[in-house]
Design a protein around this nucleic acid. Structure first.
Length: 562
RNA sequence: GGCAGCGUAGCUCAGGGGUAGAGCAGAGGACUCAUAAGCCUUUGGUCGGUGGUUCAAAUCCACCCGCUGCCA
């Protein structure tokens, strides 16, 4: 039976390029999951988009003497290019800047307002008279009252780690121009999160299938007690507030960005020519999955569900398989210090599949994990290429040369060969279950072990020997391994779509792996093979040194600049 | 500071009350179809530290140390 699977992926902030942490954390697992479900014959809707609002973008635009719209457009285009090159198969990747998004946001805002989940109140805000801008906490700087650090931010002291309220700081000033701010009273809307506390608690209790880290974080927030949160800001860049008197205010990004999941679904439906097509993914038995980094858990397990509960009639998340963080060469990623590997930069120089493999095989599912160029090289050369790529290449070239370029007729299958074919089906089944439960790392491992088993079989059978004595025996072994390759291109498809498609074609199939479905696609004897080529490129050892020094120099330059 | 997660073989990571696991790296071997890839065998860890609960702890508890994140 075909299922409806909604996949929401964290909205990247259109303020800078994407790095490997973003990919390992959200985009790659989401794409693996989407491809898997499509192959299973399920209906998948995977959406996301550029988050284009918020103060950092306006400030960046001012610094670069351009407009927020131009900053956003630049990165939005870069994101789209990256998705294409890396094979992240969104059904729609839009932005929060569409009229549709504004309309959907207004609809939810007014709905929650009418039901009393949103109320109006006054709050004090810091305002910089020189920048003529309301200053969010992190744009305030001053001296920490606890440790005396002179560059503490309005929300937290970087030196002693204490959380702060901006008015506690001594010598308070604007982070951008050092002018002392003045505090003004301003009217804003607030979301009554506490009124969802009980319902959320009851709902979270049922989510026993969620990851431990996600549940742990969620319970922590519930335990502390939810608090009301402002959902509007004094800004001019953002989604407008549909209330008179609020013409110069905008909806706070955190509130409208999560609504993007719904507005993107509606936009997708319109593009399909069926305005109601989104409903099948948001109602009834449809299950929704949200792929995010651990920093985003609060918004996806509590805030967004609360908004949905208040709104009514739409499915709450079925799962939020948040990943932990990726470190680079053992050090934490830092965009401001230039300690990052940028996706667009990687894709200019290397193939997508090896990266997908390296990140999936070591995905930060249960804890932070590390990416190093040495490890990347090893994964590519010793696992991907040596175990899987070489298996494909040795069998395909052997069949191509010795059996007239066609799939040989197997003849009678012995027990060993049958058990390997059975093993292929067991693997398919096992990977199926693992992917169903979002256990990506295990799924890669299990897939690779099938390739290992096939290598072992091939060595035992030695068709290169038997072909000199008994052609049928050799044909049987070759046929068996070709069938295992057919299974491998299927199990690996979610992880390695590009090489799977190539293998699919070398095996003589037409069309895409997608159409073949999640099953061992046995080869018709006599099917014409295509001239095989190596699936993966061996990387030279000096890649490690080159990339490491590149990383160091980028990082140093960045520090000199700032 | 509070809270959460993590700390397991040289490296990257699984496991999670009952004789320590995988892959890679290292060592030895047989083979040669293949991108000098593959296969077999093998070295290697008192599971961050100290206490405690238990017949039994890497696994539970307490405290400590280190790393990471969150504090809306």
């Amino acid at each position: 039976m075909s299922e409806h699977i909604f996949i929401g992926v964290a909205w990247p902030y259109a303020n800078g390029p994407l790095h490997l942490g973003h990919i390992a954390g959200a985009y790659l697992p989401a794409d693996i999951f989407a491809r898997y479900h499509r192959l299973k014959g399920n209906k998948v809707l995977m959406v996301s988009g550029s988050d284009q609002h918020g103060a950092p973008i306006t400030i960046r635009a001012e610094r670069e003497s351009t407009t927020p719209q131009e900053v956003v457009a630049k990165y939005h285009q870069q994101f789209i290019d990256c998705w294409k090159k890396l094979g992240i198969s969104f059904d729609l990747f839009t932005t929060t800047g569409t009229p549709n998004h504004t309309q959907v946001t207004h609809n939810i805002f007014l709905n929650l307002l009418n039901k009393g989940y949103i109320y109006k109140d006054k709050m004090l805000q810091a305002y910089c008279p020189k920048c003529q801008r309301v200053l969010p906490d992190r744009y305030l700087e001053g001296t920490c009252p606890y440790c005396g650090f002179t560059k503490a931010r309005g929300d937290e002291c970087d030196a002693c780690g204490k959380p702060l309220n901006s008015w506690e700081l001594k010598d308070l000033r604007c982070y951008l121009c050092s002018t002392p701010p003045r505090f003004e009273s301003s009217e804003h809307f607030f979301l009554r999160l506490p009124s969802f506390q009980d319902k959320l608690t009851a709902w979270i209790k049922e989510q026993t299938h969620w990851r431990h880290n996600v549940l742990g974080t969620t319970w922590k927030f519930l335990g502390e007690g939810l608090k009301d949160r402002a959902i509007t800001r004094d800004l001019d860049w953002g989604v407008t507030v549909p209330q008179s008197g609020f013409e110069r205010k905008r909806i706070y990004v955190w509130f409208e960005a999560v609504i993007g999941y719904l507005s993107a679904s509606k936009e997708w439906a319109k593009l399909q020519g069926d305005d109601t097509a989104w409903q099948a993914f948001w109602q009834d038995d449809a299950r929704s999955f949200y792929f995010i980094g651990k920093d985003n858990i609060f918004f996806h397990t509590l805030v967004w569900p609360a908004m949905l509960m208040g709104y009514g009639g739409l499915n709450l998340p079925y799962d939020v398989p948040a990943n932990e963080f990726l470190t680079i060469e053992g050090k934490k990623l830092s965009t401001s210090r230039g300690w990052a590997i940028w996706l667009h930069d990687y894709l200019e120089r290397y193939e997508p599949d090896p990266l997908r493999y390296a990140l999936a095989a070591n995905m930060p599912e249960t804890g932070d994990s590390d990416f190093s160029w040495h490890e990347f090289l090893r994964r590519n050369n010793n696992e991907l290429l040596a175990t899987y790529g070489n298996l494909a290449h040795r069998v395909l070239t052997f069949a191509y040369r010795n059996f007239d370029g066609v799939v040989p007729t197997a003849g009678e299958m012995d027990e060993r060969s049958q058990s390997l074919l059975h093993g292929a089906e067991v693997t398919l089944d096992g990977v199926d279950k693992l992917l169903y439960h979002c256990q990506f790392k295990e799924a890669v491992k299990k897939s690779m072990s099938l390739a290992q088993e096939a290598n072992r079989y091939l060595d035992e059978q030695a068709p290169w020997k038997t072909i000199k004595i008994e052609r049928e025996t050799s044909a049987k072994s070759v046929y068996t391994v070709l069938s295992v390759l057919a299974a491998l291109k299927t199990v690996f498809y979610p992880f390695l779509p590009f090489s799977s498609e190539r293998l699919h074609s070398f095996l003589g199939f037409d069309g895409s792996v997608k159409e073949a479905g999640w099953k061992v696609q046995f080869l018709p004897p006599g099917q014409k093979l295509r001239q095989p080529q190596p699936l993966f490129v061996k990387l030279d050892e000096d890649v490690v040194d080159k990339e490491s020094s590149r990383l160091d120099s980028l990082s140093e330059n960045r520090q000199i600049e700032s």
